[in-house]
Amino acid sequence: MASKSKVQIIQPSTDLRKRAVNFKTGFGVILSPQETQKLQLVVEKSSDQFTRQIGEKLKALREEFGALEDGEAPPLRLVERVVADALEIKGLGGTFKFPLLTQIAKSLHDYATQIREPNAWNTVIVGHHIDALYVVLAQRITGLGGRIEAELLKALRAASTKFK
């Protein structure tokens, strides 16, 4: 049991609040719909940059995986790049109205993270994920897509579980 003297409560610093919170200038403590919309425009402005940047990453990954021979395992450094890129896509997709990208990237990240000794199955499964991401981006499938996209995601997850 913790003794009374060892657990202390420290009152919060109110310096920042005193400096920044007021009744005249700035954004509301709770955002109004207009303020939210204003901020949303900032995100939308970066949308083209996002599709370009992610498109380039996926293109490069596709080329590297495409260059592997049939039955060849991906080198570990390539797997590490997949892990990093998948996490990045997972983190950004939904913000730019591509939640399906986020979901596929999560599936890819979960799969690639557990690869210790790459094998030929990894090439196939990672390759399918990359192709799926590429298609979603190229076709500008915003939102979660429809039945086909849901089936695709389910298939990718099932394959990831089966072929480690």
Binding site: A2, K6, I9, I10, P12, L16, A20, V21, V29
Partner: peptide, 18 residues
């Protein structure tokens, strides 16, 4: 924004414990 607003407008106490 909600998290930003929380740390600025509603700072929480700190706890120092083992």
């Amino acid at each position: 924004y909600k998290r930003l607003s929380a740390v600025i407008a509603y700072p929480r106490s700190f706890v120092s414990a083992p």
